[in-house]
């Protein structure tokens, strides 16, 4: 088979397609994160930990979530950072 790199013109097209797909996906994801601000979120974390909090903001690398009123098993933590590596999924209503 012919490797795609043998057709430079096709590569440019493919690159542009990929860039368009990436930016559409990223923009939509960023808008999703922005829309959660001040919403109640349920975090489902590793070790079967489930906690609720009010979402604040995410950093752009999706490493940390800044939240308020985090209901931990031992009480409410007013301000908290949650490591995204600890999170399996989270839900909210729209």
């Amino acid at each position: 088979s012919i490797p795609s790199s043998a057709v430079p013109g096709g590569n440019t097209e493919l690159l542009q397609e990929e860039q368009q797909a990436r930016s559409a996906l990223r923009e939509s994801f960023l808008r999703c994160l922005l829309s959660i601000s001040n919403k109640k979120v349920q975090f489902h974390m590793h070790e079967n930990v489930k906690v609720e909090a009010t979402f604040g903001a995410s950093d752009i690398d999706v490493l940390n979530f800044q939240v308020s009123n985090l209901h931990t098993p031992i009480g409410v933590q007013k301000e908290a950072l949650i490591r995204c590596q600890d999170v399996i999924s989270f839900t909210f209503d729209v």
Partner: peptide, 8 residues
Amino acid sequence: GASVRVVM
């Protein structure tokens, strides 16, 4: 409305 789940 809808429920949204973000899966890491």
